[in-house]
């Protein structure tokens, strides 16, 4: 009885989590829309085409995409119930994610050092918010991965842990997708 109950619960959790991600996506969409409305309101300060450092952004994009790849590999090993390999690829994902965060921090910090902040104008308010919000999501993902290590150690790859990990992977790929939007709408758009 309990097993059937748990199995149903895990299926529900997956759908529920997916729905949550959709709501998160709508939240980002509202912010994207605001960014597009506000992006030319730079109020005599330089706009995106001058401020953005495309090569740095391209680098961090590659880092994040790679982390999605390692995350996918971890997912493969979850299905094979291989704790060691799962942990290894998760660790790599965590490192890449942290590195991505660091790069993002550098980028924003450079802007602040040049004298631009979210208080400068509406365009930069929207820009900083978007990047920081995505960064906070990545940070949450990193925390989640960290917690997963402990869960792997305590319970191994039980169904319970595996179902949690599947949701984690979904989350991580989702953040990747959001970043692709940011890359296109914020960075590429500023340069065309």
């Amino acid at each position: 009885m309990t097993e059937i109950f748990h199995q149903h619960q895990q299926e529900n959790s997956f759908l529920g989590f997916w729905l949550y991600l959709m709501t998160d996506l709508i939240m980002f969409a509202a912010l994207f829309a605001s960014y597009i409305v506000l992006k030319n309101n730079n109020f005599n300060s330089p706009g995106g085409e001058e401020l953005f450092n495309l090569s740095l952004v391209l680098f961090s994009t590659i880092v994040l995409l790679t982390s999605s790849f390692t995350c996918g590999l971890a997912g493969l090993y979850v299905e094979k119930r291989n704790v060691r390999a799962t942990s290894f690829w998760l660790l790599l994902t965590l490192i890449l994610g942290s590195f991505f965060l660091f790069l993002g921090y550098k980028e924003l910090n450079n802007l602040v050092l040049e004298g631009y902040s979210w208080q400068t104008n509406a365009f930069l308010s929207a820009f900083f918010s978007l990047i920081i919000l995505h960064g906070l999501h990545i940070a949450a993902g990193i925390l989640w991965i960290t917690v997963s290590f402990f869960q792997l150690r305590s319970f191994g790859l039980s169904d319970f842990v595996a179902s949690k990990l599947r949701r984690l992977f979904l989350f991580w790929h989702f953040l990747d997708v959001v970043w692709i939007f940011i890359f296109t709408i914020v960075y590429l758009y500023a340069h065309i």
Partner: peptide
């Protein structure tokens, strides 16, 4: 989610001096 985001933006304006909806510095 739209409500949550909108309220968040308003509170960012109020707490951190951003300019999403202010009447100056490009807010809308």
């Amino acid at each position: 989610p739209i409500l949550t985001m909108t309220l968040l933006m308003l509170s960012l304006d109020r707490a951190f001096g951003m300019h999403f909806f202010t009447s100056n510095l490009g807010g809308n």
